[in-house]
Design a binder for these strands. Structure first.
Lengths: 210, 210
DNA sequence: CTGATTTTTAACCATTTGGTTAAATTTTTG
DNA sequence: CAAAAATTTAACCAAATGGTTAAAAATCAG
């Protein structure tokens, strides 16, 4: 058994991710996964007992990078705006490398929301930091650092502007009259654009911000 | 044949929409559609020749309301901000009534983007009004009515904030720590919230706006 | 009432698909 | 080299599924 280079197991997992993303969980064919991995169906079942189990692994993998980073950002220090900026930057970077992920994840999450619980989320140490973050937003509003609004709307807007461009790409390309290359460029400049937009929308001019 | 009350054909189409949305195009079962419509599989194939054809009809139906309204809004008169407001209001109203639609549509659109062309979009009279709208945005920026930014980013942000909450509901509910009822309430107040956010972000204070 | 239309029943078919199996072959490892 | 592990081959199976068919039954329209 090799240890350093890529194993067949990994080749299968990578192929499975691509095929699941392309075709959805029902649409994915085990034969297609085997072909894409460059191995045969027998070996596929030699390593993974069935489609459902394979899907579970791929699905949880999709969060393995995302969730811990999110937890760190919102548990850590920093002002609301600093956390938002760190979130937008981090998530965008992740999505630019794996643009198909959100469609896949949100799609399956809508079909079986519970899976999110039993997966990576439940394995995280400590409570989710969202309650603290929502409170922090409210405090900064009270202190007059940011404009008063429903903290959940703010958070919804931030996440929408970050994630949606990767889900609505086919439709947005039509509406914005750009081709794939131009769209890709739009996405690389997205972080700045989002942050300017958000800051204009919520930042109040006070003596004590940078 | 009855004409006024709901026909079996319509019952089937309604059922098909629900099942396709729930399970995706590959995951949907003809038997399940028949059951949900309260008829049998034979009748289903008596009216619709096959699954693909049925799906096509449902898919195009999903746009039949949306696209013409969009065309009207952006072809019509009014300032950029007025058009944005009319868009947000219209689309939100549509989505609150059919919250599962965007996931369904965007999902299948990512799988087969061409279908969008051959469907309702190609049947619309006249050219899409998006080019005009993008130009209008640029003009108002030049005139100092709204803040300077990439018009496409602005349009992306507007659409993201409007549509994403319906796609990311399961995830947002976890992050925002709200239950389904609270989430529903958030959505009903969404139009105001979005518009305030956008106006703060892009509107410049000039003597000649309302 | 009567013919036409709609709907059901129920059996059936061909194909796809997830999954299995066992033996042969290749590769790895000690 | 020899045992162990990884991989292929190829045939096979059972279940699910899209779709068909023909005749009976129910409903509707003139």
């Amino acid at each position: 058994m090799k240890e350093l280079d890529i194993t067949s197991k990994e080749k299968i997992l990578n192929a499975a991710r691509r095929v699941f993303i392309r075709n959805g969980s029902s649409g994915a064919r085990m034969q297609e996964i085997a072909d894409e991995a460059g191995i045969n169906k027998a070996l596929l079942h030699y390593y993974f007992k069935n489609k459902e189990g394979l899907f579970e692994l791929v699905f949880n993998d999709a969060f393995s990078e995302f969730i811990p980073k999110i937890y760190n950002i919102f548990s850590g220090d920093g002002s609301v705006m600093e956390k938002i900026e760190r979130y937008v930057e981090t998530h965008l970077q992740l999505l630019i490398n794996k643009p198909d992920l959100p469609m896949f994840v949100l799609n399956e999450m809508q079909r079986e929301p519970e899976r999110f619980f039993s997966g990576i989320l439940s394995k995280m140490p400590g409570a989710p930091p969202f309650e603290l973050f929502l409170k922090q937003i409210e405090e900064e509003m009270k202190d007059g650092k940011i404009r008063t609004m429903n903290p959940r709307d703010l958070w919804m807007n931030v996440m929408s502007m970050t994630v949606f461009p990767f889900i609505g790409e086919p439709m947005l390309k039509k509406f914005l009259l750009v081709n794939s290359e131009e769209y890709r460029i739009l996405l690389t400049k997205r972080k700045e654009s989002i942050m300017i937009f958000i800051k204009q929308a919520v930042l109040l001019p006070t003596p004590n911000n940078a």
